[in-house]
Design a binder for these strands. Structure first.
Lengths: 117, 117
DNA sequence: TCAACAGTTGAATATCTGTTCAACCATTTG
DNA sequence: CAAATGGTTGAACAGATATTCAACTGTTGA
């Protein structure tokens, strides 16, 4: 996660490197992107997201669906919630989760396309 | 990464769970998706990918651009190579890397859209 | 052939991350 | 109010992962 330690080599193509550097986004942007994609980088979480893509579900439903404990699911939902990938509503004892926006679907679809090439 | 340990709770909405289950993809598909997205889930790697989106670059260029050692960059490129996200060509002492297909760009763009909402 | 440099690799280390466990809060129902 | 159930939380542990380091390969040019 650290950056600028040092670079032991010479720049081979100074001009190209300079040009590309102009196009690069800020440090924090790459951090945010990584943080976002990290959430898709776990089979439990993608599965949760893909399930919620089909229908809103409560924690117990998800636990049953994935064969996992409510606790494990709840921990993962918390991460997804903090990243605003899912939203929730409480109805009685149940908390229903659903996707926060459709970027999630688009990203998963794009991933599916890539792996099925 | 493990699955079916047990679920301590009852299924609340058996019908919905059943319906969603039908729509779910295979276990291995979610694994593959997670493996793919995990590669985008590191700021060094997204930065490499985003840089290569602009122009093909050799390892030294990337090292200089990101302020990291050639070794660190090379290790990451290996992961990206194995996942067929980047391709490379050797020219003399230099090895030039570039994006393997345009899903990479689409996925990163989608990510940018999400974080800039 | 040898030196120099680009790049790769494997082992080691420090850090991060996912699940479990136990305790807890929230809501409903008797 | 008490019991039952859905859900959340924090600490702890095990497994994964990114960078470093040192050794190595491959290519060029003297």
């Amino acid at each position: 996660m650290e950056k600028q330690p040092h670079c032991e080599c010479e720049v081979i193509h100074a001009d190209v490197v300079q040009a590309v550097k102009q196009q690069l986004l800020g440090e924090e942007t790459y951090m945010s992107l990584a943080t976002l994609f990290k959430l898709f980088g776990d089979s439990t979480r993608v599965q949760i997201l893909h399930a919620l893509e089909q229908h809103e579900l409560c924690v117990c439903d998800l636990a049953a669906l994935l064969g996992m404990t409510k606790s494990a699911i709840s921990h993962q939902l918390k991460s997804l919630r903090l990243a605003r990938l899912v939203k929730y509503r409480r109805d009685g004892q149940n908390v229903y989760y659903s996707l926060a926006d459709d970027h999630v679907k688009k990203i998963i679809d794009m991933g599916c396309e890539h792996i099925s090439e």
